[in-house]
């Protein structure tokens, strides 16, 4: 038991991207998925209880060690000049893509009331948005969706963790 926790901790430490439970199952061939999940949960609690600078979090369908949020001022000093902030236009565009995906650019333009080409290009370059395919209508417009990196950057387990759009829900109820 202790040994397994140590192995999982080592795997998490060595992994470059969030580590999925499936990958851990592959590595620890004699252990059930259920057991690994509970070991991971134990590890999360252990790190939280320790109150150190690192915590284990579930993001983008996997698990990853991350620094504690409230320590960001110090870590940022170390990483000075490396964080790329998103402009309000990029954030809005990203929100529309995240909530309405898969969707075409015309839909983003309609919702935001402006042409989203520039913002979309930036998001594609930052690998937060990707081209999912082409819609089978005249002109074959490109369909966009969010990436795994989007989940990693925004600290989301999966898309279902996105908070619901309150106003939209209210609006739909009113129409019914």
């Amino acid at each position: 038991m202790e040994e397994k926790i140590a192995i999982i901790e080592a795997l998490l430490f060595a992994s470059e991207a969030p580590l999925t439970v499936e990958r851990i199952v592959e590595t620890l061939s004699d252990t059930e998925k259920k057991e690994i999940v509970s070991l991971l949960e134990g590890l999360i609690r252990e790190y939280d209880a320790r109150g150190g600078g690192i915590c284990l979090r579930e993001v983008a369908g996997g698990f990853q060690f991350r620094t504690r949020t409230d320590l960001s001022p110090w870590v940022r000093k170390l990483k000075i000049g490396r964080s790329a902030l998103l402009s309000p236009a990029a954030l809005e565009t990203l929100a529309v893509v995240a909530y309405r995906q898969p969707l075409v650019k015309a839909e983003i333009d309609r919702i935001r009331g402006v042409d989203a080409s520039g913002a979309l290009k930036g998001l594609l370059e930052k690998k937060l948005v990707r081209i999912v395919g082409r819609k089978d209508v005249p002109g074959k417009p490109i369909i966009y969706g969010t990436t795994r990196k989007f989940l990693e950057v925004f600290n989301l387990k999966d898309l279902s963790e996105l908070p619901t759009l309150r106003e939209l829900r209210d609006l739909q109820e009113q129409q019914e």
Binding site: V75, E92, A98, I111, V153, L171
Partner: peptide, 24 residues
């Protein structure tokens, strides 16, 4: 509809963001 997405964008921005609030 636009307002909802504008708020959603703000709430996205308030999340602990990688390389801004949390680091790997």
């Amino acid at each position: 509809e636009y307002q909802a997405f504008k708020e959603a964008a703000l709430s996205l921005n308030e999340r602990p963001l990688l390389d801004r609030d949390v680091f790997t």
